[in-house]
Nucleic acid binder design. Structure first.
Lengths: 212, 212
DNA sequence: CGAGTCAGTGAACACTCGTACTCCGAACGG
DNA sequence: CCGTTCGGAGTACGAGTGTTCACTGACTCG
């Protein structure tokens, strides 16, 4: 339903495109994008190397597509979690839980992001940085609408949003390293860290100098 | 002076070994370790591919050596900075300044660390993680000896040390992305973030629940 | 001095890689 | 219905890869 105006042709095209993306993601579990071969991907996807060019110009372009696939659908989700009612403590726990659940559900996607955030492929780095900046802005916006944010400058809100987002990223990669059995401990420490930040937030206006 | 018991032979060996490390580091500026070719390195170092095996088993082993070279000499430095007298604000500014100076002095080394921290080469990831864990422990130890740390559990000190270390890493990679001209702004934001953490630290015992 | 060690050489191995061709045949649009 | 479009197959090429092997010659040490 909804709008699927595509014919059989475009459907098949999208199908193989997705096969390429999936195959690449599976291969990227144990290596990084810069060492991923075009042929390697097509072999795993069950297509000929030449077919790759019908969908992506580079493996770099494929990487950018993977970034969109992973992070593109996450926007708004954080804002939604932060917008729910409850005190700081509750919202904090919920946020961490949401992250842990997402990472547990699609580990390969987040491993890819963590790996390529500082990886060797420029366009992919840029795509990830752009998405994370958007996240930071969204978080800052959500924080700005809380009552506790009165008196905060826009710059400090962005700083705080970036802080939260960076910690989100760190937490995901720590979760991936820890594996399922270490998840509980990682979540526990992550919550403590965020709690400390929250406490600092509550006293920010009392003690932070106006300017430097 | 000191102890250089090595003959001409071992000296030359160490010289080419260093040439390999330097060449690799230069090449790693624009790519990641997993895509770094053995031949590529030897070519840049002015040696034949076979000579590589006299020094390293893998490119992975070379990566581990690079980790040691970059982070091995940094231990104690942080503790020294933190041990200096002055209030939190001063120590905080000094720490950030030290980081900025080191990153500015040897950007390639830190770019390598940031890139391979979550990169595709397992042994290198492990080596970096081990070094960072040591840093976190050292920071925790230094913090524990301050008067303000009275009443803190060892676990919370480690949590805080890890928080500082992770932020150190984030700051370095942000500095690298920003380049020399953006350094001042990055340092400014980094200081603010640390200040927020410090404020949270000051009120931690008042508001943090005992256990979860 | 002379035997032994060993860092580095050079050639050859069997691959994999990205890319440029031509060609096929099913889906498309007038 | 028929000509066109186009996703994908197949083949081939040159370049680059990691690794092995026998070898050389300068340094080391008894």
């Amino acid at each position: 339903m909804s709008h699927t105006p595509a014919g059989i042709r475009q459907t098949q095209k999208l199908r193989t495109r997705q096969a390429l993306l999936d195959a690449a993601l599976a291969l990227l579990e144990h290596q990084s994008l810069s060492s991923l071969g075009l042929r390697e991907v097509t072999r795993a996807a069950g297509v000929t190397p030449t077919a790759f060019y019908r969908h992506f110009e580079d493996t770099a372009a494929l990487g950018v597509a993977l970034v969109e696939e992973t992070l593109g659908s996450l926007h708004g989700l954080i804002a939604a979690v932060l917008a729910e009612t409850g005190d700081s403590e509750e919202r904090l726990d919920r946020s961490v839980a949401v992250i842990a659940r997402h990472v547990g559900a699609q580990p390969a996607h987040f491993r890819f992001i963590a790996r390529e955030q500082h990886g060797g492929v420029g366009p992919v780095r840029a795509a990830i940085a752009a998405q994370l900046r958007r996240f930071a802005e969204e978080v800052a916006c959500a924080l700005g609408q809380e009552p506790g944010a009165a008196g905060w400058s826009e710059e400090d809100l962005l700083m705080l949003g970036g802080l939260y987002v960076d910690h989100m990223v760190i937490t995901t990669s720590t979760l991936l390293e820890a594996g399922p059995e270490g998840e509980a401990e990682v979540v526990r420490v992550a919550r403590r860290r965020l709690r400390l930040v929250t406490i600092g937030r509550a006293h920010w206006l009392d003690e932070a100098p106006a300017r430097d």
